[in-house]
């Protein structure tokens, strides 16, 4: 069992390192139409200087809504977990 764990870990680490070495070079990202559109049109459409803020709250606002829901669910489950704990 221990040997299988070690073998799995070594194979997985080898896979990760091989992927890291074979990945596209750092500093030359794949050209993406979406990112160019965001950079060129964020000031005109969302009137925001911060392109990341315009993506987070305007273009992909549904992501932010889901993420706020995740945070709310975590908080309410933590409060629920410690509900019966003695004061």
């Amino acid at each position: 069992m221990e040997l299988a764990k070690i073998a799995f870990f070594l194979i997985f680490t080898y896979f990760l390192l091989a992927c890291a070495l074979l990945l596209r070079p750092f500093g030359k990202p794949a050209v993406s139409d979406m990112d160019e559109y965001f950079i060129l049109n964020a000031q005109r459409e969302a009137a925001s200087n911060n392109v990341v803020a315009s993506i987070v709250f305007d273009y992909r606002g549904l992501d932010t809504l889901g993420e706020a829901t995740v945070l709310f669910a975590a908080v309410s489950s933590i409060v629920l977990l410690f509900r019966g704990a003695p004061k």
Binding site: P29, S32, M34, D35, E36, F38, I39, L40, A42, V51, V52, I55, V56, R60, D63, T64, E67, V70, L71, A73, A74, V75, S77, I78
Partner: peptide, 28 residues
């Protein structure tokens, strides 16, 4: 030269989401 010099913004926005979710997971 804005288009050629600026870092891609979409991964940064997704990372912002990912950070908050990992914080919630850690607290839980």
């Amino acid at each position: 030269e804005v288009q050629a010099k600026m870092v891609l913004p979409a991964p940064q926005a997704l990372t912002l989401t990912s950070i908050v979710i990992s914080l919630a997971v850690t607290a839980l």
